[in-house]
């Protein structure tokens, strides 16, 4: 944790500097007759962030915050495995949306999580994998009129069947 604390403070400091620099694309001072420039608000806020990272670093040196006292690793073996399996699954889910549609990606993610991570039975897995995306489809597309991404054109015939039910 101790190492993670100072690295994170460093990353936050760099982010603050980047935000300050980015804010200067607009005026960061006071413009007579117009008030504070468009960049002033984020510039000074990022400045305060930078000062805060300095205090976090001081607390790290003085070992006054709990993470700066902890010698445990930020991520242990279980944490790394969990991050890869759960975080990777989520990453895959979102990456698949533009290919096999939101509903298709939802089904694949449910299959992966329920069967391979949750070790649930095939029957429960298949029931949820099919019913939930279809349920979501009718809720969003028919009731709420919110259109979700449909992926590449090969998914079209499938969605035509569902749209025929709505209209």
């Amino acid at each position: 944790m101790r190492l993670g604390e100072i690295i994170t403070a460093g990353v936050m400091a760099l982010l603050s500097i980047y935000l300050m620099w980015k804010s200067t694309e607009l005026n960061v001072g006071y413009i007579t007759g117009e008030g504070p420039g468009g960049g002033a608000w984020p510039f000074w806020l990022a400045g305060i962030m930078l000062v805060c990272t300095g205090f976090i670093a001081i607390n790290w040196v003085r070992r006054s915050s709990p993470p700066s006292q902890s010698e445990e690793p930020l991520l242990d073996g279980y944490g790394k495995k969990m991050l890869v399996l759960v975080g990777g699954g989520l990453l895959g889910f979102i990456a698949l949306v533009d290919i096999i549609s939101m509903y298709g990606a939802m089904a694949v993610f449910l299959l992966y999580y329920l069967r391979f991570l949750g070790r649930h039975s095939w029957s429960l897995t298949l029931i949820l994998t099919t019913s939930l995306p279809i349920g979501f489809f009718f809720f969003f597309e028919a009731l709420m009129r919110v259109t979700m991404p449909k992926g590449l054109p090969f998914t079209e015939p499938f969605f035509n069947i569902l749209y025929n039910i709505i209209y």
Binding site: V86, I94, F109, L110, L114, L124, F136, M148
Partner: peptide, 28 residues
């Protein structure tokens, strides 16, 4: 079971994140 609830929460998160602005940029 939490292994059923967790993927449901993740799905609601992704769908909710998209529904708010309808832009995949926001989901990423």
């Amino acid at each position: 079971p939490f292994t059923v609830l967790a993927p449901l929460i993740f799905i609601l998160s992704v769908v909710g994140g998209y529904a708010a602005t309808q832009d995949m940029h926001d989901v990423w």
